[in-house]
């Protein structure tokens, strides 16, 4: 299957959209009609041909445009990509994992030839053709994490494992839901999650940490997380909050269907072999409300979830300004009929 890459933007004129064929493969995050925090982690096996879970690193029609947006963010703020000095080996682990996976899963788009440590990498969509020595950073134009991070959709954090904890010691983060790598780099698992309400009390992070510390090589896991974003904007960083914050005032009952986007993070967890670190890809998928409700099951369920969301979470996810308006708008797509279990459309 050849992917038609869309020419689109995630800023200014916001031409981003999902083509009709792409909508049903959206990772809708609600398996039930109500939502509460949980670790809800499952093995990241290949599931459902055509779904975003078919391959370890999903490539879709937004790939090229997302990589252009990442380059713009990094040009403007190099602090979005940082690695503490001991994280270079982990960067090479990341290079290997992505290149091997993509060349195997998308042979029409990516090619990798390895002769010992002499590697030849071809990325056709981004028109990259590079030869380098695996393990020798001087043969790449930049840090290995940045090199591959500019060629793979989603933000990527790399967590060093030591002292019974995980440390956010490297990352390339340009499409984040409101957290700052520059501020959080070097923090441990509990420190960087400190601002998340409720979850600490529920013991969510303790359980999640225990799970991650024992993550075996070759057996990745995944979970879905979500929020809402006004406009299809990838870069909702705290750094740029003054740029995207005012967007929330632009929401009206007339434009809400096109303005508000369901923002889903497909989070996966991979044990890296040479560094013993964990790679934490956070892949963001965006879909306008108008697109969500084309799937009747999703329209019904999203209405119920948003309507019944606990007030602390409405606040934390930053939905307060338009929450009632959105519930009202979504109610038109909920006839009260029961919904089928699971996330996939009927």
């Amino acid at each position: 299957m050849t992917i038609q890459f869309r020419n689109e933007t995630f800023r200014n004129d916001f031409t981003y959209a999902n083509s009709p064929g792409n909508i049903p493969r959206f990772p809708f995050p609600f398996p039930e009609d109500e939502y509460m925090y949980s670790t809800n982690v499952e093995p990241h096996h290949a599931t459902r041909v055509g779904s975003p879970f078919e391959h370890g690193f999903d490539v879709d029609e937004h790939y090229v445009a997302e990589m252009k947006d990442r380059a713009l963010v990094l040009a403007d703020d190099p602090g979005r990509c940082q690695a503490l000095p001991h994280m270079e080996t982990a960067g090479w682990d990341f290079v290997e994992l992505v290149m091997v996976s993509k060349a195997r899963d998308y042979p029409d788009l990516f090619e990798l030839t390895m002769e010992g440590d002499q590697w030849h990498w071809i990325n056709k969509p981004l028109q990259i053709d590079d030869k380098f020595t695996f393990g020798d950073a001087s043969t790449l134009p930049c840090h290995p994490m940045e090199y591959i991070g500019r060629q793979v959709q989603g933000d990527h954090a790399i967590l060093d494992q030591r002292d019974g904890n995980l440390w956010l010691d490297a990352g390339i983060i340009t499409a984040q839901a409101d957290w700052s790598l520059d501020f959080d780099v070097g923090m441990n698992f509990f420190e960087w999650h400190a601002p998340v309400p409720l979850a600490h009390e529920l013991g969510v992070f303790q359980r999640a940490l225990k799970f991650l510390l024992s993550l075996p090589q070759g057996q990745p896991s995944r979970r879905l997380n979500w929020t809402l974003t006004v406009n299809p904007r990838l870069d909702t960083s705290p750094e740029n909050y003054p740029k995207w914050g005012p967007d929330k005032l632009s929401v009206t009952p007339d434009n809400i269907g096109e303005k508000i986007h369901l923002r889903v993070e497909l989070q996966t967890f991979w044990r890296l072999p040479r560094s013993n670190a964990i790679l934490f890809p956070i892949r963001t998928y965006l879909m306008a409300m108008n697109e969500v409700v084309t799937q009747p099951k999703w329209g019904r369920r999203l209405h119920r979830v948003i309507r019944d969301l606990r007030p602390e979470l409405v606040e934390y996810k930053g939905l307060s300004r338009y929450h009632p308006m959105l519930v009202e708008w979504l109610s038109k797509y909920d006839d009260g009929a029961p919904t089928s279990p699971g996330i996939f459309p009927d």
Binding site: H86, D160, R162, P216, Q217, N276
Partner: peptide, 12 residues
């Protein structure tokens, strides 16, 4: 089994 490391060097 695949290798598991519970005794890794602290690279710092």
């Amino acid at each position: 089994s695949a290798p598991v490391n519970l005794f890794a060097l602290d690279l710092r």
